[in-house]
Simulated scan of single mutants.
Amino acid sequence: MTYPTDIRFGVRELDNAQGCLHLQTPDFDYDSFADVAQALITVLGASVVEKEANADLHIWLIDFEGCRMMLKGEHYSSAMWLELLSRDDGDTLAFLAGWLKNLTQ
């Protein structure tokens, strides 16, 4: 399966204290989350380790260059964010925030 490369992603907020990077994404619903999330994974050059879907929340464990984090998406609000598993990886999250900001300029 191929994923669209014209999907744009951006940064809403980097919350270093919570270890979260809130993302700007296209609107998605429960059924389209996987397409939008996989497009983000492709843009980041990351890989999916594990996927879980609940009633209103998708949770994917991803790996970005050896840093594991959670990609979460809540379909009612079309909110998507990256969440660190270890506070020691804050530099990686800051790097991704800066990199995504540069992509959208």
Rank of each mutant, 00 (worst) to 15 (best):
E65L: 07
E83M: 13
M80E: 00
G73L: 09
L23M: 04
F95K: 00
P4M: 11
D29V: 10
G98T: 06
L85T: 10
F9H: 10
L93C: 11
T25K: 00
R8L: 10
L100D: 03
A94Q: 10
D88S: 15
I41L: 05
I59R: 11
P26S: 09
R12F: 06
R87G: 14
T5V: 04
Q105L: 15
E50G: 03
G45S: 04
A37W: 04
A97I: 15
Y30A: 01
F64S: 13
N54V: 03
H75Y: 15
A94M: 07
H58R: 05
G90E: 01
Q38L: 01
N54A: 15
T42L: 09
M1I: 13
T25C: 08
D35Y: 01
F95G: 00
G45M: 12
G73R: 01
Y76T: 08
H22I: 08
A55G: 00
E52C: 12
K72W: 00
Y3V: 13
R87A: 15
D56L: 09
L100P: 05
Q105V: 15
D27F: 13
F33V: 03
C20D: 05
D29G: 14
D89G: 02
C20K: 12
M1K: 13
E13Q: 15
M80P: 01
D88H: 09
N16P: 04
L23Q: 08
A17C: 00
N16D: 09
M70H: 13
G66N: 11
T104H: 15
G90L: 07
D29N: 15
L40I: 05
